[in-house]
């Protein structure tokens, strides 16, 4: 490859074509003038604007970051406030529920107590009624039983018992029955 490059260069030089060192002083002048012009325009007009633009952006970004941080802090504050309010509300609600529960429990207990009292009264009343009825039945039974037993006994022993001695026997029997009933209750 390099031999071709040399060949090309030599061939060109041989025919007076290409010589990179041919004096070109005009290029010196034009390069200098062009460079100084570009330097003036870039250094005086363009770079300061570019730098200013970059600085502006830097400032804008910094401001926006600051504003975003402020907004975030505010949002965090609002969130904390909201959370504390929610917590307070929750606490209040829990308290209210507990209170309601306690009140309901109290009412329930009262109702139960009242119902139990009423039930007890009803039972006592029933018991008293039953007891009265029993007394009445027993006394009725007493009379009937004495009579029935006398009749039965008269039939059994015929003439061995007088009505009075028979009555005594029956009353003694009833007294025994009462005693055994009292012992049972």
């Amino acid at each position: 490859m390099s031999s071709f490059v040399l060949l090309a260069t030599e061939a060109a030089e041989g025919e007076g074509g290409f010589n990179p060192f041919d004096p070109e002083f005009g290029l010196v002048v034009w390069t200098g003038v062009a460079f100084l012009t570009v330097l003036y325009l870039l250094a005086k007009k363009v770079f300061p604007k570019l730098q200013e633009g970059l600085a502006d952006r830097e400032r804008k970004i910094a401001d926006e970051i600051k504003a975003a941080e402020k907004t975030r802090a505010e949002a965090e504050k609002i969130l904390a406030d909201y959370k504390s309010r929610v917590a307070a509300a929750r606490e209040e609600t829990t308290g209210m529920i507990e209170e309601a529960r306690a009140a309901a429990e109290k009412v329930r207990q009262e109702l139960i107590a009242r119902a139990e009292g009423d039930a007890r009264l009803i039972v006592d009343k029933a018991r008293k009624q039953l007891s009265g009825e029993r007394e009445r039945i027993l006394s009725e039974l007493e009379g009937s039983l004495a009579e029935w037993s006398t009749n039965i006994a008269a039939q059994i022993v015929q003439k061995e018992l007088t009505p009075d001695s028979h009555r005594d026997l029956v009353e003694g029997f009833i007294a025994d029955v009462r005693k055994s009933e009292a012992a049972k209750s």
Binding site: L7, A8, T9, A11, A12, G14, E15, G17, F18, N19, P20, D22
Partner: peptide, 14 residues
């Protein structure tokens, strides 16, 4: 060397 295209082409560097 006779009719080298490189002569023409390298002329583009001058």
């Amino acid at each position: 060397p006779e009719e080298s295209p490189f002569t023409e082409l390298t002329g583009h560097l001058t």
